[in-house]
């Protein structure tokens, strides 16, 4: 029983990073009704770029690396928008899907080339801290990952629900034609959505690096798949759904890892996807359609 609780707790804490990745997918979908397949790869790319801080400034504290990853993620988000969406006809439903898949592979290739395919060590904070309650314990570095992710989510929700930019974003996602006629520039809102999701992604990538201890190009594909699963389970376009689904998938896979081993666990995560698609295709929170 204790093992089970421990696995759930560790998994849910780590699942906060899945939630961030899911939010990135779901937010772009909500605003543009497009899937950005390159999102998880760009997030890992942002995390790698954060390591450049250590190149420039040897012995830089980990939080500076995280900050670097956060900012690099935003820049990458903008680049993904510029290359994969801005000049590509949005009316063709497959064009941006293809361009973002291409971008995913491109980012992968760049990472492999720059690091010669070698996994890179990633700094962590509070990794020597361990909170204990009897046999039950919580890793300090995972608690930090969780706290940073939650803060990022709160920041995003404040941006969406408390600022005029957020209002404009929600207006565009619900009724793009009327939003334009209300004087909102679609192109600007779209680009800003990519920058904001990119920032979140860079942070998520850094948090994943910090809790795993290394970054490797092998991360991008599973993370892309898990981000999409989280998005589907949460309900396309739903931010609360993505948060809940991220934590759920994190806990679920860690429990299965405990009982079935690390090589078998993702198999069940995939089965969970099919279960949702069959029995609850709209996800936990099917997005209300305010859009025609």
């Amino acid at each position: 029983m204790l093992d089970f609780l421990q696995a759930v707790s560790d998994g849910v804490l780590f699942g906060a990073t899945y939630a961030l990745i899911g939010i990135g997918f779901t937010l772009v979908f909500g605003v543009m009704h497009k899937i950005n397949m390159a999102y998880a790869a760009a997030s890992v790319g942002g995390a790698y770029a954060g390591l450049l801080v250590l190149q420039v400034m040897a012995g830089a504290p980990p939080w500076l690396v995280f900050l670097g990853a956060f900012l690099a993620g935003g820049v990458l988000g903008w680049m993904v928008y510029a290359l994969c969406f801005h000049f590509i006809p949005l009316s063709n439903p497959l064009a941006t899907l293809m361009s973002t898949v291409g971008m995913l592979l491109l980012i992968d290739e760049v990472i492999v080339h720059v690091t010669a395919g070698m996994p890179q060590n990633y700094p962590a904070m509070f990794d020597d801290v361990m909170l204990r309650a009897g046999e039950f314990s919580m890793r300090g570095d995972l608690l930090l990952v969780f706290a940073v992710s939650v803060l990022a989510m709160i920041g995003l929700l404040a941006l969406l629900y408390r600022t005029s930019l957020g209002l404009a974003t929600r207006a565009v996602s619900q009724q793009p034609v009327a939003a334009q006629l209300c004087g909102i520039r679609l192109v600007r809102v779209n680009a800003l959505t990519f920058v904001v999701t990119g920032l979140l992604g860079g942070l998520a990538g850094a948090m994943i690096g910090a809790s795993v201890g290394t970054l490797s190009p092998l991360l991008t594909t599973p993370l892309t798949v898990k981000g999409l699963i989280v998005t589907v389970i949460g309900g396309l376009g739903s931010i609360p759904g993505a948060i809940l689904a991220g934590l759920l998938v994190g806990g679920f896979e860690n429990v299965l890892q405990l009982y079935r081993g690390v090589t078998e666990r993702d198999l069940y995560v995939m089965l969970l996807l099919f279960a949702f698609l069959t029995f609850r295709p709209g996800g936990l929170f099917a997005a209300k359609s305010g859009r025609d």
Partner: peptide, 16 residues
């Protein structure tokens, strides 16, 4: 009709 369905009445006016 093309309102912002998931925004409040007040917010619909505020956007414009």
């Amino acid at each position: 009709i093309r309102l912002f369905g998931q925004l409040s009445v007040w917010q619909n006016l505020w956007v414009a």
